[in-house]
Design a protein around this nucleic acid. Sequence first.
DNA 1: CGAAATATGGAATATTTGTTTCAGAAAATA
DNA 2: TATTTTCTGAAACAAATATTCCATATTTCG
Lengths: 298, 298
Amino acid sequence: MTDPLASAAGALAPREFSALVALVAASRHRLPKRLAQAAAYAVAHPDEVALGTAASIAASAEVQPSTLVRLAQHLGYQGFTDFQSVFRDRLKSRASDYGDRLRRLGEGATGSSSESLIGGFVAAARASLDSFENSLQADKFSNCVNILAEAETIYLIGRRRAYPLVACMAYGFAKLGLRAILVDSANGIDTETVAMAGRSDAAVACSFSPYAPEAVAQAEAFTRNGAPLVAITDSALSPMAALAADWVEVAETDFAGFRSLAAGMTLAIALPVAVAERRQLSAVRGGEMATAFSRARW
Amino acid sequence: MTDPLASAAGALAPREFSALVALVAASRHRLPKRLAQAAAYAVAHPDEVALGTAASIAASAEVQPSTLVRLAQHLGYQGFTDFQSVFRDRLKSRASDYGDRLRRLGEGATGSSSESLIGGFVAAARASLDSFENSLQADKFSNCVNILAEAETIYLIGRRRAYPLVACMAYGFAKLGLRAILVDSANGIDTETVAMAGRSDAAVACSFSPYAPEAVAQAEAFTRNGAPLVAITDSALSPMAALAADWVEVAETDFAGFRSLAAGMTLAIALPVAVAERRQLSAVRGGEMATAFSRARW
DNA sequence: CGAAATATGGAATATTTGTTTCAGAAAATA
DNA sequence: TATTTTCTGAAACAAATATTCCATATTTCG
């Protein structure tokens, strides 16, 4: 009933993987043969422990399932399930990296001082940048740039949360001398405006869940003439993705229910530059391409 | 017993996550409501699907466990277990991918130019966040929040590069139910608008070098009545800093001559939340403060 | 060496988890 | 609107999984 080694050593069950490894390393020589064998296997194959069942892990480690339960209890855990949860948490935090740091920040923000509030949003911004960089499909981005580089006029569609992004792009395109129109008139003629776009134009539509109906309607109106639409959105299920010739995924991390915009803004800055570069490339063809816009600064 | 949609579409169950997402995206509109809901949740929270149980996932997605089984079958899988294995495989490969991703990063940008372009802007965004976090003076930020929390109406001033920031703040304040006016009328009455602000109002002025004269003029006009101005700017020498009751420094890093906006946007998201929290705090005084706006999401 | 304590394997058990079923609700169709 | 079909939620069911138990083997210590 008691757990001889662990409680004798006075150590509580570690809730973090690295601490668990340390505990195993320390108590390894004191452990009985089969338990040591199981422990060695566990720290050597953490992913399998996280995803497997007691039976499958036991088979791979060449021990009995009951040995795994005993090992867990010897280390101070309630049972195998408890032991396994450490491995699962590790996998989770590994996958999202900043995810658990954020979570901890959210839990730890007791006084909710404005400093920790800022810290939380900064962490969310970093997490967004990470996942953006990880999930970015270069070919899709490149394709989007091509589409826009060939357009006569670029229409920029985005409402609500996505509006700062298109506003930023409008500024970028303007600075770089590319014709872009920000679809944000105050008197409700936007749908008509985009409906009059020609086939040689293109549009960038930004929208995130919950997708602003107005922006979706504008994107629909735009595509009706057959002109290509490039979307910046947060999921393959987005209505914008369905309308787009190609699209780039930007899934922002949230803090306290407020989503970051860091990844989206970064893309909003990069896209005009990439389009300008592409145009230079096809125009000058091998000449000193990066000069015409390198003097444009913001 | 049959799986109407999937087998009718002739599609076999995808064994890879990306294909699964594509399938969900394609068949989404044909799926019944609850199934679509579950599918949307699954592609949006792949990690949780990988590690959770049918019951826990169902609870998070707000459907019945049986709905998950039905979804899996509709998509052509044998059952939930089969469906889940796709998510688990993804997690496994992601975890092992992590190592060589890092390696690739160290080798230097061998990929296409557009990829390295994005990489550069992401790096600039990270650097901006770092320096922002390091240089942030908590007392100044806190002071700015106080000023805004006491204001009746908050005017938002910003042009050109700073405009996305004030646009973002306008959205945030609106979502949180705080009265804020974005000074961006298209017909040139902005200076008059801010000149009519009262002493019990406040303004946020964003401006970065080279400081847009229009924004500076508006900030000047606003302060003339004695109302407090809060500035977000990049240097103590900024004209905005001179006009402001207090100000926060945001010095962005640039890549290829294009400055990031990540730090500024992060502040633009945090500021409204902080102001709302401060108001809650002084209004409810010790009660459950974080509830009123915790339900507001974007 | 012999006795006590501990560890082990394998099977029995209890629990959890996935799956199926079915009555009623909702939607589609005529 | 009436009728059929499809979908949904809740609970019953079946399968799997973790855990416990116990007889036997192994080690430890007097």
